[in-house]
Structures are given as C-alpha cells and as structure tokens.
Design a protein around this nucleic acid. Structure first.
Length: 467
RNA sequence: GGCGGGUUGGCGGAGAGGUUACGCAGCGGAUUGCAAAUCCGUGAAGACCGGUUCGAUUCCGGUACCCGCCUCCA
C-alpha cells in the first residue's frame, strides 16, 4: 500500500499517515459561511483537500473514506446581510449554498460525503455546551455561555504554539465584563427578537462560531478521527477553540490525529482585499471565460504549504498547457477508468505535492504517453469536461451550432490556402481572430487540415457574416 | 507586541545530504506561403555569514529582507 506522508501542523513534522480505521478514513474540512459568493481564497483549501480526498480514496478505496465539509448557516454576517437586503435568512443561505456547489463543481471538486448545516445541529451543540458546563470548562454569564480557558490552561494553544500568558500579553481580544479571562470565547450568545435564535437552558440564543465544528465532527466522524483541515488563518483561534471544546467534552478521545493547513492566497503579490480592489470571486473568473480547470490547475501549481500568488501570467500558462494536453488526449477512444500513473501517486503521497504531480504530467506529455497523461489528468480532476464542447474547443458553454460554424470557417480557410489565395485566407483569419476564433493548421503526416479554436464568445450571426 | 511562513536560474516552481526537477521565456536548428503549433538541441540557481559532514541549495545557528495570522474580507 502506498505510504502517505503528511505535514502535521500540530507537530510541525512530516509523518506517515496511519488512519485509526483503514476501513473508514475520516477527514473534516471547515466549510464556508454562506452569505456571499466564494472568493478565490476560499477555493484553495477546497481544491487542495479535494486532491487529498481523491488520494485517500485511491489508497484506501472509495467506499472507505468519509469526508465532511460543513456549511455555516448561522452567523452575524448572514444576519447583517438579511437586515441590509430585507430578505429572509433561509433564502440567503439556500441561494448561497447553491452558488457554492455550482462554483466548486466547476473547479472539479468532488462533493464531500456529508455537508452538514450548522442549523441542523443546534441540539447537539446545546448538549455539548451543557457537558462543558457540567465538567467545569464553561460558565453562563449574562445570557452568554463562555469557554473558560483557565480550565484547560496547560493545553490551550498547543496547535498554534502560544500559551494563554503569551496571548494575554499581546491582548487583542474583546474585553467584556462578564469574561473571567479575556481569552474566554463564546459558546452561546443571546439573540434579540429580530435575530435567529433557539431555545436553550440559557434563554433564546444562537451558537458561537467554533462550537458547530466540534458538534458536527463529533456527530458525523466521532470523537477521534483522522484529518482536520482548513486554511492557516483558521489555526488560531478557530481550530484551537475546537480542540479545547472537543477535548474537554471527550478527554478520553484524541480528536483530530493530523491537522493540515494551507497557506494563504495572494493576487499579483498582494493580499486579496476589497480595499485594494483586487478582490474577486470564483464566479467572476468563470464569467470572464476562465475555465474551472484552469483555475484548478493554477491552484495546484503551488504546494499548499506555501503562500500562492494568483497572476494573469499563471492563468495564461495554465490555459496554454491544458489546451496542449487536451489536444494530446482528445483523440483517445474512451477506454474506461484508467489507473493513475504511479509516479503521480508517489508525488501526491509525499505531503500532497501537487506541483510535483503536475511535473509528472509534463514528462508524460513530453514523451507522448497519452494514455497515462489522460489517466493523470483525470486523477487530478483536470480532464476536459465533456460538456464543454468538442475537440479543439476551449471555453465554457460553446454551443454546437457555433462550433459547427467555426469548423466550417476552418474548412473554407483551408480551401483558400490550398487554392494559394493567401491574401483572402489571411484576411479571413484576421477577421475570425477578431471575433475570437483562432484558425490554425493541423498536420498529421503529410495531410493538412484546418482547425478552429473558439477562444471568445462569437455569435452565430458573426460567424455567418464571415462567409 | 505575540505566533507562524518564506527567500532556488530571466519568470514560475519542486524533490532529495552526493547523480537532469519540471514548466514558461531565451538562444541554435528542423518544419513552414506567412503564422501558430510541433520536433531536436542548449545556457542559466539556490539571500548573506558561520557550523556539522568526506561532501549541503538540502541539516543546525545567526543576520538581512519579504509575507501572513492574531482585527467583519479565508
């Protein structure tokens, strides 16, 4: 069996992965708060850990991996959006979840085994909070329930490498009179009448942010499971707080064995932020005609443990590379599921070295091993999605009639070339390029043929006009 | 202030204590109506200072610089 090695953020070491139960390998990824479209930074962990999911399924069997990714559908940002738009919260979360699925599907991410919504697990959260109070790790105060970090002082901070004392020294925490220690964090908070709330022993209220992941991972994966993943920004305080909650409720258990965190995404060398104006969503890119596979390729081109920079140049290179590979594999007959190349699996098994895996694909393409290339592309989720169009097309939603018209154009162009009417041929080529159709020569031995690549969004009328 | 990450050839970006990463671009050539694509060949690296070692870009320490998190935008 392939030995998978993963860097465990908890120990800062690359360790050989040994699941608690090989018949049921369990991983949890912190999912989105559903109040708006997912931006590119949100997509990185989804794509990176989708590759981990694929690798685990390959090694342990597709039926032996349980992957949970939650939806946070109760949160102050959602409440704020509802207030600003006058729309019901349920409408907003439902719509956003639909967007999320569509966008992540476009990036080739497989759907997790379970996608629990926080609001479906309120009773479990309340039970967990009650248990924390009973065990002396939490206390109610002014309608709130807070986790008492002093009750867990010697352990709190292990993941992020800080001690309670360190953090108080640098204190940038919300100071509230009802907190015993400024580092104490909210498990439950009161809701006003116009805010979503549930009855609880502490009055009508709603959960704090961290408790949902503890409750849902416990319900779906158990009190000890294998991998917990997310962006490095979640390491503190979110994951630290999850650990505190879960370990205090189940001191006999070990919670997550391996913690994995991806580094942050930047755009043209700078942090993506609304104030810098370089903030964009996955949907923005898709709408601009960047195929999901291209976005995925760029995201996988940098190892997850390093900051990754999204640049226009990378987008172009990724697009050119994929176009080349798809052309190489397009002529293959459908030969059914293919075993991924061993070298590719070896690269991924080494701490999810996706950049190394892509290098393996480059080597396969260079030595014209089309079958293995196709298998590798499929494994990484980079195969050309059949619905996108026929051979030679590149781009989303090019419909058949447009494609047929473009191909007719290519045939006409070749006819002009063969008749040595080069000025007419060149003129046609230039005009085709203007509406986003690239005409090129394909050679197979001594036989030449014209090829049309639809790069833009030409209308049928525009294509007809060139005839 | 606390915590963490990074610094590899023109650019992007990996592994590995000793043997070519890989890609893009460049350069030389083939092919070509012109292009594009393709094919063959090719130069180029490891921030700085020490240490360990027969040998370090790879391990350890220090210096410099860059970046992120702790603060509604992951």
């Amino acid at each position: 069996m392939t030995a998978i090695r993963l860097t465990n953020t908890m120990t800062h070491r690359k360790e050989v992965f040994a699941p608690l139960d090989p018949a049921n390998v369990r991983m949890y990824l912190c999912g989105p708060t559903v109040y708006d479209r997912a931006h590119l930074g949100n997509a990185r962990p989804v794509v990176v850990f989708d590759v981990l999911y694929r690798l685990l399924r390959h090694v342990y069997g597709p039926g032996h991996v349980t992957y949970v990714r939650n939806f946070t559908d109760v949160d102050d940002k959602i409440i704020a959006k509802a207030a600003a738009t006058g729309r019901p919260i349920g409408d907003i979360t439902e719509e956003t979840i639909g967007w999320y699925h569509a966008d992540m599907d476009a990036l080739g991410a497989l759907r997790p085994t379970h996608e629990p919504r926080a609001t479906d697990y309120i009773p479990q959260m309340v039970a967990m909070i009650e248990e924390l109070i009973a065990r002396g790790h939490a206390y109610a105060a002014e309608g709130h329930v807070l986790f008492a970090v002093d009750s867990w002082r010697e352990h709190y901070g292990a993941l992020s490498g800080r001690s309670v004392d360190d953090m108080i020294a640098g204190a940038r925490v919300e100071v509230a009179p009802y907190k015993r220690n400024p580092m104490d964090f909210v498990l439950w908070k009161p809701s006003a009448d116009d805010q979503p709330g549930w009855d609880s022993p502490w009055g009508k209220g709603r959960p704090g942010w961290h408790i949902e992941c503890s409750a849902m991972s416990d319900a779906l994966l158990g009190s000890s499971f294998d991998i917990h993943a997310g962006g490095i920004d979640l390491q503190f305080p979110h994951h630290e707080n999850e650990i505190a909650q879960s370990m205090c409720v189940h001191p006999e258990a070990s919670f997550a064995q391996v913690w994995m965190h991806n580094e942050m995404l930047q755009v043209e060398g700078k942090k993506m932020s609304k104030s810098l104006g370089n903030f964009f969503t996955v949907r923005d890119l898709l709408d601009k005609g960047v195929p999901g596979e291209v976005i995925r390729f760029v995201l996988l081109g940098t190892h997850y443990s390093k900051p990754m920079d999204w640049t226009e140049k990378k987008r172009e290179e990724a697009e050119a590379t994929l176009r080349k590979w798809w052309a190489l594999t397009a002529s293959l007959d459908d030969v059914g599921p293919l075993a991924p190349p061993k070298k590719l699996i070896d690269a991924l098994a080494n701490d999810l070295n996706t950049a190394g895996a892509i290098a393996v694909l480059h080597e396969l393409a260079g030595s014209v091993k089309a079958l293995e290339l196709a298998a590798g592309l499929e494994f990484l989720g980079l195969e050309e999605t059949p619905s996108l169009g026929a051979v030679g097309s590149f781009g989303l939603g090019v419909d058949t009639a447009v494609l047929e018209a473009a191909n007719a154009l290519a045939r006409r162009w070749m006819a002009l070339r063969e008749a040595k009417d080069f000025s007419a041929a060149d003129s046609l080529k230039v005009r085709a390029a203007e509406i986003g159709v690239e005409l090129t020569v394909l050679r197979e031995g001594k036989v030449q043929s014209g090829n049309a690549a639809v790069l833009g969004r030409p209308s049928l009328a525009q294509l007809e006009a060139l005839k």
